Every structure is written in structure tokens, then in C-alpha cells.
Simulated scan of single mutants.
Amino acid sequence: MSKLDEKVGKYIDAVKDTCGLEPDVDLLRKVTAACGPVIYQRDAETVASSDPDEMDRVKKNFLMKKLGLSESDKLDEGIEAAIETYGRSERTKYRAVFYYLLTKHFGKDAVYGS
């Protein structure tokens, strides 16, 4: 099993167990692969949802640049929805899972060819 497969397996479990959702495994794999090497770095693998600067980076670098969304209050609402789905008290929010939740929330699966 490759390192990527191990990460995807861990993220599938997070979507099922922590978020209570049945994941689109193909999309989750594509989102995970697109995250690149950061998923192999302990600190960068997760997002700090309580850090406003981090959420601003997610908004600008992921939602606006990667997903092509325009600046609006809807972006903050989407981030809040992803935090709620993941569980506000969940300390370990994996970046790939968080991005997956945002991709699904905004219906941007096509960005990943899904």
C-alpha cells in the first residue's frame, strides 16, 4: 500500500466516523492527491479551524484560487458549515477532509474531474 493510499484510508475513516458521512472515495482521493506533500507533514496535514488567519488562507488559497469562487459571505458560511460537519470540538481536522467537505458543500467536484 502506498503512502497516499494509507492517507486516503485514514481520511475515509474520518469522513465516516467523525463527520458521519459516506464519502465519495474517488473525489476524496483526488482532493488528497491535490494537497501534495503537505499531507505528510504533521502540522500542515491539519487545519486550525479556530485560527482566523488559517481560515483566511483556506478561503483565499483554496476556495478562491483552487475552486474559483468569488469573494462573498457565502465562503465564510461554507467554512462554518464544514467546521460544523467535522465537529467544532474535533481537534484534528485533516486538511484533505476539510477541503473535501468544502468541495462538496460548494458543488465543485468538477474541479477535480468528478
Rank of each mutant, 00 (worst) to 15 (best):
S2F: 03
L4K: 08
D5R: 11
D5Q: 11
V8I: 15
V8C: 03
G9K: 07
K10L: 14
Y11N: 05
Y11A: 09
I12D: 06
I12H: 09
A14Q: 12
V15C: 02
K16M: 11
T18L: 09
G20Y: 01
E22L: 08
P23E: 03
L28K: 04
R29K: 15
K30S: 07
V31W: 01
V31P: 00
T32K: 01
A33S: 15
A34R: 09
G36T: 12
P37L: 13
V38P: 02
R42A: 14
D43W: 10
A44C: 00
A44S: 08
A44H: 05
E45R: 13
V47G: 02
A48Q: 12
D51Y: 14
D51W: 09
E54I: 10
R57N: 10
R57Y: 09
V58Q: 07
K59Q: 14
N61R: 13
F62A: 02
K65F: 06
K66R: 14
K66G: 00
G68D: 13
S70P: 02
S70Q: 14
S72R: 09
D73W: 10
K74W: 09
L75Q: 01
D76A: 12
E77A: 15
G78N: 00
G78E: 04
I79A: 06
I79T: 02
I79L: 12
E80W: 04
I83G: 02
I83P: 06
I83A: 08
T85K: 14
T85Q: 11
T85W: 01
Y86H: 13
G87N: 02
R88Q: 14
R88E: 15
R88K: 15
E90L: 03
T92W: 08
Y94A: 06
A96R: 03
V97Q: 06
L101R: 00
L101D: 05
L102R: 06
K104V: 02
K104Q: 05
F106C: 04
F106A: 05
G107V: 05
G107C: 03
K108H: 07
D109G: 08
D109M: 02
V111N: 08
Y112S: 04
Y112H: 06
Y112T: 08
